[in-house]
């Protein structure tokens, strides 16, 4: 495995002293049991099982079309699963709208395409949900938004519109926007795939800082440097199933499944 180690070193290398914040003594914060999902006749998720404990950082990777996005979008009900059980922070996802809204308040999400609101300034993007969903006074929401903008490294862009920012800055605003709701869990769906190489680092740095602050994170990504630095466990998805899971050490140095080996060889070259 020395070869893939060598290519790993060519990728993004955060200088982090690895330290897990997972609290395995507590109840799992996400429980997915035998989750199935069909698009029409197409079987996109074929029985996913996963438990995530508070403070854990989970990296999900796998080939295109393997169901990674579909799965994490089921966790905040952007997609509806048709069989199995998903429990988030003790609340089961059902058709009950109040359950869905309650879970969405606790789960933040960052998208590949940023999805900022182009008609609102950066500050308004971030304060919108705290004001209208959490019902905070505007002053409080703005104060926290400014703190978050400082945390993601762009305190001076608050009054610009998203269209005036670079891709990396936009994605950091998107992270701040999700954090403003003070979620317990953050979902990331390929947050750096739409970015130029120079900008990937600035977004990953923010995500690493977030991981080290003890946030529970589910990250779909192929940034293996990030995975090695902060992931507690990794899940390899293929054809709607979890083919293999384990710690980064296990996955990188000693993958059990042939499919995992092939895929890692592909993306690490």
């Amino acid at each position: 495995m020395s070869e893939s180690q060598a290519t790993l070193n060519k990728q993004y290398q955060p200088s982090v002293h690895k330290q897990s914040h997972a609290r395995y003594d507590q109840e799992p914060i996400i429980i997915a049991e035998d989750v199935h999902k069909w698009y029409g006749h197409f079987h996109a998720l074929k029985g996913i099982n996963m438990k995530v404990w508070p403070g854990e950082v989970i990296v999900i990777f796998g080939p295109s079309g393997s169901g990674k996005s579909t799965f994490i979008r089921c966790i905040n009900r952007l997609e509806e699963h048709q069989k199995g059980r998903i429990v988030v922070d003790g609340i089961e996802l059902t058709h009950d709208v109040r359950n869905i809204e309650a879970i969405r308040r606790e789960v933040g999400m960052v998208f590949q395409q940023f999805n900022l609101f182009p008609h609102l300034t950066v500050l308004e993007n971030i304060t919108l949900a705290p004001i209208h969903v959490r019902k905070w006074p505007k002053e409080k929401a703005e104060k926290i938004a400014m703190e978050l903008l400082a945390r993601v490294g762009i305190p001076d862009q608050a009054h610009k519109y998203p269209g005036q920012l670079s891709g990396g800055q936009q994605q950091r605003v998107a992270i701040a926007r999700a954090l403003a709701m003070q979620p317990k869990i953050m979902l990331f769906d390929e947050p750096t795939s739409a970015l130029d190489p120079e900008m990937i680092k600035e977004v990953l740095d923010v995500m690493i800082e977030l991981a080290q602050s003890g946030m529970t994170m589910l990250v779909v990504t192929h940034e293996m440097g990030f995975a090695r630095a902060v992931a507690d466990r990794m899940f390899f998805f293929d054809k709607g199933q979890v083919v293999e899971s384990g710690t980064p050490e296990e996955i990188f140095t000693n993958p059990k499944e042939e499919r995992t080996k092939q895929f890692l060889a592909q993306i690490l070259h």
Binding site: N76, L78, E101, R104, R105, V107, G108, M109, F111, Q113, N115, L116, F117, L128, A129, H132, V133, R177, A178, M181
Partner: peptide, 14 residues
């Protein structure tokens, strides 16, 4: 774009 609806829903907006 669909992403605007998804982002708003993900933030908990009704």
């Amino acid at each position: 774009p669909k992403g605007q609806y998804e982002a708003a829903h993900a933030l908990g907006l009704s």
